[in-house]
């Protein structure tokens, strides 16, 4: 993956994350974690090589197909990415509405997913009325509401205190336990050490460590 003005953001990077797996992407700032995630959700295209996500080849899909790829993914960011003028439930419903979901099915789905993240009682609260941890839970609820098989989280605990971090991380683990594949980029090694999940460490755009014992079967992410 090359930078637009030259230089390589990622180089000789090959790994495969299986269906239902939980994988950490770790590394220092600038190691390429976010770039990998952007390649997965089609914000960036690989300048070389192949990125395969849930049946889509990101390097080859047309611009019109990108929304279809993203509906197969849930994406969570460090800055939550919530719309400040909408309540928690409106933020979650928004993700369904913009994908053309049936209007009469939206309310039930929103309630179910807000309950899942433990925020049913704060459905009518605006982001400014919620703590950082709660805002991130709303963002996770929004990412989950379309029942995506893959959840991408880019430093989801980066802006949270320790307690909120634990809560959000546990939520992600619960989601994984429900069968969702979770790829979480983080530089919080304490968090990583708490679990036995797979760890892929990046340095200067290359994989320097992969805890997966099985040899690399094929390129890309499925």
């Amino acid at each position: 993956m090359a930078y637009p003005r030259g230089g390589m953001a990622l180089k000789d990077l090959t790994f495969r994350v299986a269906k239902g797996e939980f994988a950490f992407l770790t590394g220092h700032s600038g190691a390429g974690k976010s770039t990998v995630l952007k390649l997965i959700y089609g914000e960036l295209r690989p300048s070389e090589g192949e990125v395969r996500v849930s049946g889509f080849s990101v390097g080859e899909i047309t611009k019109q197909e990108v929304p279809r790829l993203r509906r197969r993914l849930g994406i969570v960011f460090q800055d939550f990415g919530l719309l400040q003028d909408r309540t928690a439930e409106e933020n979650v419903a928004f993700a369904l509405e913009v994908t053309g979901a049936r209007l009469d099915s939206i309310a039930a789905k929103v309630t179910r997913v807000l309950t899942q993240v433990g925020l049913a009682s704060k459905a009518r609260s605006y982001p400014t009325e919620l703590s950082g941890g709660e805002q991130q839970r709303v963002a996770i609820a929004r990412a989950l509401v379309n029942d995506p098989p893959i959840l991408l989280a880019d430093e989801p605990t980066g802006n949270l205190d320790e307690r909120a971090t634990r809560g959000v991380f546990q939520l992600l683990r619960d989601i994984h336990a429900g069968g969702t594949c979770v790829v979480m980029a983080t530089h919080d090694l304490d968090l990583v050490r708490q679990t036995t999940h797979r760890v892929i460490e990046l340095r200067e755009g290359a994989v320097v460590y992969d805890s997966a014992e099985t040899p690399i079967a094929s390129e890309g992410i499925s």
Binding site: P67, R71, L83, F94, V98
Partner: peptide, 16 residues
């Protein structure tokens, strides 16, 4: 910002 979020959750450009 709203447009960016719409895109990330899978809204088509036509819808936006």
């Amino acid at each position: 910002r709203e447009i960016r979020i719409m895109r990330l959750v899978g809204a088509t450009d036509g819808f936006i």
